[in-house]
Simulated scan of single mutants.
Amino acid sequence: MNWILKTIIIGIGATFTMDVWSYILSMFKIKSLDYSLLGRWIGYMSKGKFFHNKIFNSPSLKNELIIGWLSHYIIGISFAFLLVFVCEKDWLTNPTLQPAIVIGLVTIVAPFFIMQPAFGFGVALSDMPNPTIGRIKSLLTHTIFGIGLYLSAILLNKISTI
């Protein structure tokens, strides 16, 4: 299997791991990002609007949930490529946990400094009630994503040898 396909599969697996984590949290009534908001943000970009006062007050767009979920997985795949770029292709056949977690934690830059301010939530949720709770949830979720990168690579290597 070529390295590009492997990286895509690992990105999908890591993103799915993050989604399983969010589902587990939801069983305890702990909310995570509503991907329709991600889709709304991306949808409004085509209209030239990149920043919102509070995105949940912006009118919803047709297919925003689908756009949000697709974008979520594309972003996860992109971050998997970041890992392979930093660690080189050798990581795909010899995955180690530490770089995967480091990349998972580095990806927190995207929500803290791009998405959350653009959504009108402030840098690292600074304009929201209880920003510390949101920050901790984001850090845990991105750590889970890093673990998902590692586990997906391990599983893919096991399946590839069968």
Score class of each variant (00 low, 15 high):
F50A: 01
I75N: 01
F28Y: 12
S138F: 08
N53H: 14
F50Y: 09
K54F: 13
L82I: 04
S60C: 10
I133D: 07
L83G: 07
S126T: 15
K54L: 09
N63T: 15
K29D: 14
L25R: 09
I75E: 00
T107K: 04
H52A: 10
L139F: 13
I136G: 08
I108P: 13
M18P: 13
V20A: 07
P111G: 06
I24R: 06
M128F: 12
G39K: 01
G104E: 01
P99E: 02
L25V: 09
T132A: 06
S32R: 12
P95E: 02
S71N: 09
P59H: 10
K31S: 14
P95V: 04
S138W: 06
T132R: 06
Y23I: 10
P59F: 04
V84R: 01
G76L: 01
S60D: 10
G39Y: 03
K54D: 09
P131Y: 06
I147Q: 02
N130G: 15
K29L: 09
M128A: 10
K54Q: 12
I101E: 00
H72T: 08
D34K: 11
A118H: 11
A118Y: 06
T15N: 04
L83P: 12
V123M: 03
C87N: 14
W21I: 08
I67S: 09
K89P: 13
E88W: 11
Y73D: 00
L97P: 15
V106Y: 08
P111I: 01
S60W: 05
M18K: 09
L105Y: 07
P111N: 02
I67C: 08
P99K: 02
W69T: 11
K62R: 10
M18W: 05
I101T: 10
T143P: 14
S71I: 04
T93E: 07
M128R: 14
V84L: 02
V109W: 03
F85G: 07
A80S: 11
